[in-house]
Amino acid sequence: MTSGKSVTRSAPSTVQATTISSSLLTVQTSGHGFTDLTSEAAGFINEVHARDGALTLFIRHTSASLTIQENADPSVLVDLATALSRLAPENAAWTHDTEGPDDMPAHVKTMLTGTSLQIPVLNGRLALGTWQAIYLIEHRKRPHRREVVLQFVGSNQ
């Protein structure tokens, strides 16, 4: 069966992974919402003179998360926040409510979105698409200090 679609692939490239560079990024959030970490991640890649490999981002929390999403139209982030609130509303009679009504929904939202990302690094640049950005999503109402581990594994210049 032929679909009529054309698929191409570039020739493979191989590098010796000789570098592991790590850094801890501290982010002060202002409560619910998205914080763009793309320039911080790109700055880290530049600082460690990364050439080819992978950047991993890992958030050290269970009520905030990471995602890659569109960076062109801010209404996308508004709609995503609305969707997450509908999937895990505060008024759902959660059993775990020790830290307030926004805590358990925050855990559910983190489970749905994730705590780590891996992004290829090609020729010293993050291989993100034109409209992609890296975001920390704060799921709690009040401000928090969040920690994100950045780690590059690969070759450097």
Rank of each mutant, 00 (worst) to 15 (best):
T2D: 14
T2N: 11
S3T: 15
S6Y: 04
S6H: 11
S6K: 14
S10T: 13
S10E: 13
T14H: 11
T14N: 07
V15A: 09
A17W: 09
T18N: 11
T19R: 10
I20C: 08
S21I: 01
S21V: 03
S21F: 07
L24I: 14
L24T: 13
L25G: 01
L25E: 13
V27M: 01
G31Q: 05
H32F: 15
F34L: 04
T35Y: 13
D36I: 01
D36Y: 04
D36C: 12
L37T: 10
T38S: 14
S39P: 07
S39A: 13
S39D: 15
E40D: 15
E40M: 07
G43I: 04
I45Y: 05
V48T: 11
H49I: 03
A50F: 08
G53M: 06
L57Q: 03
L57H: 04
F58V: 12
F58K: 02
F58H: 12
I59E: 10
T62F: 00
A64H: 03
A64Q: 06
S65H: 03
I68F: 03
Q69G: 04
Q69N: 15
Q69P: 04
E70N: 14
E70C: 12
E70G: 12
N71R: 14
N71V: 01
A72S: 15
D73V: 00
S75T: 15
V76N: 06
V76R: 02
V76S: 03
L77H: 10
V78H: 09
L80M: 15
L80G: 04
A81E: 12
T82P: 00
L84C: 04
L84Y: 10
S85G: 15
R86H: 11
A88F: 08
A88D: 06
P89Q: 07
E90H: 01
N91R: 02
N91I: 05
A92T: 02
A92L: 11
A93V: 05
A93H: 12
W94Y: 14
T95C: 04
H96M: 03
H96P: 05
T98S: 09
E99Q: 07
E99A: 02
P101R: 01
D102Q: 05
D102H: 06
M104L: 10
M104R: 01
M104E: 12
P105Y: 00
A106K: 03
H107V: 08
H107I: 08
V108H: 00
V108K: 00
M111E: 04
T113K: 02
G114S: 08
T115V: 13
T115Q: 14
S116H: 13
S116D: 15
S116W: 06
Q118A: 12
P120V: 00
V121E: 03
N123F: 07
G124V: 10
G124I: 10
R125N: 13
L126P: 12
L126M: 09
A127N: 12
A127P: 00
A127Y: 10
L128W: 09
G129A: 14
T130G: 05
A133D: 09
I134K: 00
L136G: 05
L136N: 03
I137E: 11
E138D: 11
E138F: 03
E138S: 06
H139M: 06
K141P: 02
K141G: 04
R142A: 12
R142K: 13
P143H: 02
R145V: 11
R145M: 11
R146G: 07
E147P: 00
L150Y: 12
F152T: 08
F152Q: 05
V153S: 06
V153N: 02
V153W: 00
V153L: 09
G154Q: 00
S155W: 06
S155C: 06
